[in-house]
Design a protein around this nucleic acid. Structure first.
Lengths: 192, 192
DNA sequence: TACACCATGTAAGTGGTTACATGATTGA
DNA sequence: TCAATCATGTAACCACTTACATGGTGTA
């Protein structure tokens, strides 16, 4: 159900069509949720049927049609309900920790190489999220600007800070993983 | 494919049947991978067909049959190959961060309640993982003891430390999330 | 006119969840 | 004899991945 709520959350900022949403969810700088267009288009139709969003057809040129979806009152309600409730945490399933759990079975140098790749990946993510966080704090992202239009100016700072804080969380987790992997490199080196 | 490698990793310690593996993967103190028995039994048959494991039937009493699986040479090879290779990171998909991203849409008190639940969950996980980590360092877990039997005593310390380090990683990530959530509580309070 | 981009779809397959289903053994 | 535990399965469903598929529009 998370994809639907992610879509509702984005559509709350402004109406969009499937293509725009796809660019958002397939974006290279990884956001908080990702999905391919093959999942997004059916989800949108399903959500329209459920009355959570409303599609309006537009024509570009003479034939190119697009469905622009806006969130409905019911959709807003559903989103707020979901946001306010506790949801069971997903069961532990971390492929990288699983891999690391059996590093004693392979050559330490190979294990170290895998850890180094992980560190590089985490640092890449940190850089992207840092940039996004800065942009949010400066209220300089497309979506946030749209979103703030329908909110009282007195709340703008608060909203930007709350959004930015989520990316601070992603950064903190990635930082913890990178630090942990570096400590792992020391452990592997010790015993050579 | 991760479930299969998780199963191989456990079976490397000692042969087990589906029921034992199920207890392991459905265990309350969450390990690094979880799976229900409905996934484990078919996976085991598939892996046997692929020659990664070997089943031997045992009879308890007069009728109760169980298949005890051991890892094969081919299984060991497959596991070592997987352990030595880089694997593409899973796309970002964190339901909790997604929820937090829209906390500006709901009552701050409700958002705070959700954050508090999250903190409690993370602390629960930390406690369980800390206990498991201590047990590993003391070489006092069932599986580790079995595993060490086939390894030279000079390596025992190193192996225990490497295993324990994985749980240190889980702890570090959970700690980062808990700290982040606490910071979120401060942010929510500020603007009341 | 060709290429990049806009725009939307389908389908097969895999991994995971939840529920249903059955029966044996052990020990209190 | 009853309950807890041992032991193994199936089936429906949902989320996600990967690949295939089609055609329109704007601009260099």
């Amino acid at each position: 159900m998370s994809l639907q709520h992610a879509l509702l959350g984005v559509l709350e900022a402004r109406p969009m069509n499937g293509y725009e949403l796809t660019r958002f969810f397939e974006a290279a700088p990884r956001w908080v949720w990702s999905a391919p267009h093959s999942q997004i288009y059916p989800a949108l139709r399903q959500m329209e049927q459920a009355g959570l969003i409303e599609g309006r057809q537009e024509i570009r040129g003479t034939k190119l049609r697009r469905m622009v979806y806006s969130i409905t009152e019911r959709g807003l309600g559903e989103l707020r309900t979901w946001l306010s409730a506790d949801h069971a945490a997903a069961p532990a399933r971390d492929a990288f920790f699983l891999q690391a759990l059996f590093f004693d079975m392979i050559d330490p140098d190979q294990a170290a190489a895998v850890l180094k790749t992980h560190i590089a990946e985490q640092e890449q993510l940190i850089a992207e999220w840092r940039a996004h966080r800065e942009a949010l704090l400066a209220k300089d992202t497309d979506l946030l600007k749209e979103r703030l239009k329908s909110r009282p100016p007195a709340e703008h700072d608060r909203i930007a800070k709350l959004k930015a804080h989520v990316f601070a969380g992603q950064i903190a987790v990635a930082q913890a993983r990178a630090d942990w992997a570096r400590e792992g490199l020391r452990l592997l080196a010790e015993s050579t």
